[in-house]
Amino acid sequence: METNKLTGPPMTLAWFIWGLGALFYLAGFFQRVAPAVMTQELMQDFHISASGLGHLSGLYFYSYVAMQIPTGILADTLGPRKLLTAGCMVAGMGTLLFALSTQFFWAGLGRLLIGGSVAVAFVGLLKLSSSWFPKKIYAFVAGNALSIGLIGAVTAGPPLRFLLDTFAWRQVITTTGLMTLA
């Protein structure tokens, strides 16, 4: 008598769970590129020069780099679900802080929070992939994750510029913050 053994979660559920993590990775790439499209708006609202804008944009990368080693440790100790959930929450709050700030300090703190929190997205997504998918398609899933991230970067180009020409930058970024929280 043969028994049907469940060797893993149903693929539709695996792709759904993976898709949630991939959306967070997409949001991280979007946040990375977005200030380059909003240069005039940010310089005007925060009364900063190009070097100030570079500093504001760079805060994302400072915290992103600082989180690389802790991210691996956190992925192993907390697991991808808790890590990605916490990352999304902090990224959403950081995005809202950035969008609603009227002072450079608070906007910078928002960018710092965004960078540090989205730093967990790729490692968390890879950890998630190793748990939810068969080993034989792991490389395919990881490659798709990179593609999703690049879609986030592209979305922060002309599509974001179109939205900024239609709506105020704070409205657009607030919306992205709320979407990240959701």
Rank of each mutant, 00 (worst) to 15 (best):
F162Y: 13
Y138M: 14
F46M: 10
A66D: 03
T7D: 08
G157V: 11
T3R: 08
T39M: 14
L83F: 09
A14K: 00
V118K: 00
G72R: 06
L125D: 02
L83P: 05
P80S: 14
G19C: 06
H47Y: 11
F122H: 05
Q171H: 12
D76N: 14
G72P: 04
C88Y: 03
F46W: 13
L74K: 02
P158V: 15
I73F: 14
T102F: 11
I151H: 02
L100H: 11
A182R: 01
S117D: 02
L164D: 07
T3P: 00
T3C: 01
R32Q: 08
A182W: 11
A156Q: 11
Q103Y: 09
A75C: 11
S101H: 09
K136S: 14
Q171V: 14
V33Q: 08
A107T: 12
M11W: 02
Y62C: 00
I69N: 01
L150C: 07
S51L: 13
A34E: 13
A121M: 08
Q31S: 11
P10Y: 03
L78F: 15
G115N: 05
Y138Q: 08
V33H: 03
L126G: 03
M93W: 08
C88L: 14
F167Y: 15
A121Y: 05
G21P: 02
A119T: 00
L78T: 12
H55N: 12
L23C: 13
I17V: 15
L146Q: 10
W18N: 00
G177V: 13
V118T: 06
T175D: 00
F61T: 08
